[in-house]
Structure formats: C-alpha cells, structure tokens
Design a protein around this nucleic acid. Structure first.
Lengths: 373, 373
DNA sequence: TTGTAAGCGTTATCAG
DNA sequence: CTGATAACGCTTACAA
C-alpha cells in the first residue's frame, strides 16, 4: 500500500470513570456490575422465569394481564435477553454470515481492496441488512481466500457460528458453495454458481439484460457494434456474452468483435483501446459492467471520440460508477439491493424450515437510458 | 430505487438429502445429528472435559503428552467449540460491531446506498478484517439511523451483542459515541468525533494533509487557488479547511475563494461550477475529497478547461475514485485501511483490559502526485 | 497436573 | 395458564 503511515501523535483524553448518567429508564441494578437477567425481571414482576420468557418470545398461552406486568418489569430493568444463553438452548445464533469467497489465495490486501472498493459490495450489504434487520438478525462478515480458510469456515459454520450463509463467490472454480451444500448448511448464493450446486441462489437475467443493450444500440441506429466482456469463465459474464451475441444475431449481426476485461476500471481502459485498434470504425459498444465502461469512456474521450455522437456506450449494473461517468452512462440495471434482500429472505426461510427445497430466483434487468447513447 | 424488479422465474433444483460425502476427517458421530462436544473429545482422548478445555485454550499446566492426545481427538472428531456456550461463561462474544451511525433518520435506502457505495466503507471494512481475523474475532455490521435504533443498539451492546464497537459516525450531531461512552462500553471511533467524547479514536492529520495540497499547488506555480470544501460542521472537513487556508496564508495568500459541497460526486460538480462562476480565472483548486474532485474534473472537461494546463486539481483520500478519474487525480492519501486496522487493535486491547486509558492515534497523510497537477 | 462440580442465562418439558 | 426443573456446552474454581 502506498504511503504507509505510522501513528504520529498519541494523546490521552483522560479516562475518568464516568458513572453512567442514568438513562431514561432508571435501572434497578445499581451499576453495570451485573446485567439484569430473566430472574431479575421475574422477581420484579412477581412471576416465574418461564412466564417472562414466554411473554418475551410472544408465546400464546399467557394471561393478558401478566403480559403487561411483565413488559413493565422488562422496561424497568432495562432487560435484554442474553444472546449466548438463548443460542445455547435454541441452537440458533441469530446471525447470518456474509461470506465472500475467492479461490485465489492472495490472502490479504490485493483481493480485499479490489473487491471492497467495488460498489457491488456496498449494494449487497445494504440489501441484506434491509431484510435482516427487521428480523433482528445480525450480519457477520467472513472473508475467505485460502483453501485452508475455507475448510475452517465450514467447520465454524457447522458448529454454529451462524445460522446460515449468504455466499458471494467471486471465482468460478470456487469450492465453497459445494462445501457448504455438502455440510448440509443453509446457504444462498448471490449470482448463479459456476457449477450447479444444491443451494438456492438469486441472480439477474444476465442474458436478457445484455439483449436489452443490444436492442437499444441497434434501435439507436448503430451499425458497427462491439463488446467488452468480463472474464470468460464467470457465469454472469458468460451469460452476458451469450445474451448479447444472440440478440445481435437476431438483428442480423452474426459477428460481434469483442475483447475481454476483468470487471475493473483499468481493464475497461485496456480493452477499449484494443477493441478500437482492431475496429477503428466502431460506433457502438456494450461493456459488461459499469466500472469497465467508465474506463472505456475515459479512453474514448482521450482519443477524441465523441460520446454518444460518434460512438455509443452501454454499461451493465447501474452502480454508482454509472452516475459518476461523464457523460452519465446508459446502462442495464441489475437490482442488486433487491436481489440481496431476497437472498436474505430465502435464507431466513430455509433456516426456519430446513426441509424447504432449494429454489432460484431470477430478477429482471431494466435498461436505464442516460447520456452515452 | 429505479427499475424495481420482481422475481420472474422460479426453478427448483431438486433437493435430495445428500449424506455429506464424508470429509477428510472421518467423523465419529455418524451424521450431523449432534455435533461433537467437549465431552465427546474427552471420552475419545480418555481425559476429562476440563483437560480438553485447557488444551484447546492453550493453558499452561498441561502434560505435553496429553496435549497431543487431545489434539488428535479434536481432529478425529472434527470438534469446534460452541461459541454460545463459551460466551455464556466467559462473557465474551468474540464479535466486534462495526456500527455506522447517521443522525438523520432517513431510515433505509437513501442513506445506506449513499454511504455503502462510497469507497470509504470498503476500505474501512478491509482494514478492520485484516486486524480482526488473525485474532479470531468476527465483525458484525450494525447500521443505525433513527434515534430509537441508537438506544436499542446500546442496549444490545450492553447486553453483550458484541465485545466492543468500531464507530463510524457520519453526522456531527450524532449522539452515539457519547451514548457508548456513557454506557461504559468499549468503543473506538474512526475519525475525530465532532464533540470530545471519552472514547479512543483514530484519525488522519487532516490539517497537515490539506497543507500538503496547498504547498503543492503553490510549488506548481499556481496563482489563483480556490477550494471546494466538505460540510462545514464535519470535523474532518473543518480541519481540511483550516489546514488549507492557514498553509495558503503562510504562502502569502490570505484569501481563498471556497464553496462547500457534501462529499458526493454530484456536489463536487455543483461546487466547481459555482466556484468558477465567481472566480473565472482560477488556475488551481483543492477539493476536500476524491469523489467531489471527480465531479469537479467532469465539469472542467465539460467547460473545456484543460487539466492540469489551465487549472490544477488536488483531491483528498486516495480512494478508487482518484484512479478512476481522468486525468488520474493528484490527491492526499489517507491511509484508511491502516487506520481501521489500528482502530481494531486499539479496541481489542481495550476489551482485554478495560482499565486501559483512551488514546487517540493520528496518522500522517501523504501526497500522491498523479496527472491533475 | 488432572478431575469434579458448580454455574453462565435461556428455553423447553412436564406437572400442577 | 403457570411454575419447577432439566438441559444446552463450556470454563473455572476447588479438590485431589
């Protein structure tokens, strides 16, 4: 990492032991020496632990009067259930793991920074949380690079580190989805796994999205259309290529010049140059994701090719990069937040009822027309 | 969110009950009916639970011979400690919460998507994980918007949802850091809190970073230099303004035209236009973060102002946006990953020894010269 | 150095 | 409908 810096200044703030300035709810226990337990609540409410437990967990068979008495006691004590104790008996952790898995064993920085700074990650996290939080479920981040880490993770998961996993598998050869399935662990994959695996997954109809782009470029009167693809072994990428070329074929264009990138900004830059070298008269290009499209746009500008007048560009994702690009990028929107939320719901349902069969949900992409076409 | 899509296709994969294809370590228990417990390991090793526990937790007083016997039994059974049971007695969860807090109560989408798609988030997560994973600590994501959520979070935290929190406070009026301090919970804030609070924090020397930018612009021979600032109530922003203007003053420039943005790409666009309207002859500008700088660059290009020939631009952060910008952005690097990792270590230390006094660590920024100056 | 046994705070079973 | 009481799986005095 460039510009490594070291701690320069250390200043103590003074660390007086503040006695908590008594919050709105006056606590019964004097200090945080010991947190209120079910027992404390029960005593205050004049009932048994069992009853308090029932009330809290919303179990039917409870006298409505007690119901209120108990809740008052809960509020008075500031009681919050101890997750560990509850987990121990229910065998549920109330936690879902978001596991990001890459086959490559570049263990630390290179992989993480590349992935995390992709807008993709944030959208997924946001979508997951929107579905998990209402259910009171935590989201724990897990990153695995090395195979060893993968095995350990499955062990932890089996054990009960989390009730289930949302799997974000970045590499086609990744064995993690299969490992999770083999272990019989609840899991939902975001994006179709490279090899079929008995886990539910959510995905976008990549092929139809790419077709949308093809139709649009043709409708805009473009004659010489090319494509910048993603890695040729990643399912999402493969589907986009297939969808685009077959749609183009339907329009009577049997040959589509294409160059592959790897979904990074920089690779889009490179691919665009290469594509243009071989096809100088290009007047339209479909780029398999927004980041690469952004890179492509920079190159076009650098080379003095007016967008969209001389050449039109369509991206894929509708990530923040599409809005950041100049001109703003026409792109195929992938409803990632919705997909992630749905994945979370699928997983939660599966955790509740392990007998549920695995299903796959495919979302429809939409074309967002902006200024590059 | 534009282009909301609905599940379109549902296809079942077939969900045969696969009997786990017996992993490398032959399990002792026939199936996953019940996971191996300490008891199982103890029996197999011919020792007591206590001994196994000691071995696993690396406690000294253990016969080296037994040591090996026990580990063999652990491997043979595929034993993994039950976190819940352990937590219950140790009163440690082995989890750190990353709490992202914004005062505004736009509860769901608007806030989350804005923040998550900022490269900032990914860098912080990456840095935290790099320090947490080696310690075997989980990272749980917590997002709080509404005040109610804030109170609930503190309750959960007190209770033991996590051993401590890394606080990412996005709004100057945010009460969360104070709430956490008041509750006596271990916490480390990333970025200096708006109001002093008895929690440790890590930060970058924003003022010195801004001074770096000023010195550089002046050294490059720029005469009419302006600034696009962040929100005027955010500490990081305030420090950058102060650092920049005082450095400029040292160079004999007592007046610096400035317009405020809000750290988004789009606000950088707006601010640049405004700044240029009032100061048409500007030949240099310091923009308080990369995202805004990217927006500013788009505008300059649109207006036909050559960068860096006619006007030089310096950003702040050295996020992925700096590399994505064209020309690539000269910027002040904030070592966010390192800062986050340090925050994690500070927090872990504090969790281990609550008597530790709160400290603050300030990292040095560095100037990364690219193509916009 | 090792084993025994007492909890940790819940939920769940089973009588009343 | 409510209350004892037994787990849940682990760590940790305390004893041996």
């Amino acid at each position: 990492m460039a510009g490594a810096a070291v701690p320069a200044t250390l200043l103590a703030y003074g660390c007086g032991e503040r006695s908590p300035p008594d919050l709105e709810n006056a606590r019964v226990t004097t200090d945080n020496a010991r947190l209120p337990t079910l027992e404390d609540v029960a005593r205050l409410a004049g009932v048994s632990r069992a009853t308090v437990s029932r009330v809290i967990n919303g179990i039917r068979n409870v006298n409505p009067e007690l119901h209120e008495v108990v809740w008052n006691a809960v509020n008075a004590t500031g009681y919050v259930a101890n997750r560990a104790a509850r987990s121990l008996v229910t065998r549920r952790t109330g936690t879902i793991a978001l596991v990001v898995s890459d086959s490559e064993s570049h263990d630390d920085d290179p992989f993480m920074s590349r992935f995390f700074s992709d807008p993709f990650f944030g959208r997924v996290v946001g979508g997951l949380l929107s579905a998990l939080r209402p259910a009171g479920v935590q989201l724990a981040l897990q990153i695995v690079g090395a195979d060893q880490a993968r095995a350990r993770l499955v062990g932890d998961l089996r054990q009960g580190q989390a009730d289930g996993s949302i799997v974000l598998s970045l590499h086609p050869g990744d064995t993690l989805p299969q490992l999770i399935a083999d272990a019989g662990l609840p899991g939902v994959v975001i994006g179709r796994p490279a090899r079929p695996v008995p886990l539910s997954h959510v995905d976008v109809a990549n092929d139809r999205g790419a077709a949308l782009a093809a139709d649009h470029l043709v409708a805009r009167g473009r004659r010489r259309i090319g494509m910048i693809t993603g890695p040729v072994d990643v399912p999402a990428s493969v589907d986009r290529i297939a969808g685009f070329t077959s749609a183009m074929a339907r329009h009577g264009r049997s040959y589509v010049p294409a160059v592959a990138g790897n979904f990074t900004h920089e690779s889009g830059d490179r691919a665009m140059r290469e594509l243009l070298t071989d096809n100088p008269d290009l007047d339209g290009v479909f780029v398999a994701n927004d980041l690469m499209a952004q890179g492509a746009l920079s190159v076009l500008q650098e080379l003095g090719r007016a967008v969209p007048d001389e050449i039109a560009v369509v991206g894929f994702d509708d990530s923040s990069a599409a809005l950041a690009a100049r001109p703003q990028l026409t792109t195929v929107r992938q409803p990632l937040e919705d997909m992630a939320a749905e994945a979370a719901r699928l997983l939660l349902a599966r955790v509740d009822d392990p007998s549920l069969s695995t299903t796959s949900i495919v979302f429809e992409p939409t074309l967002i027309v902006r200024a590059t076409t």
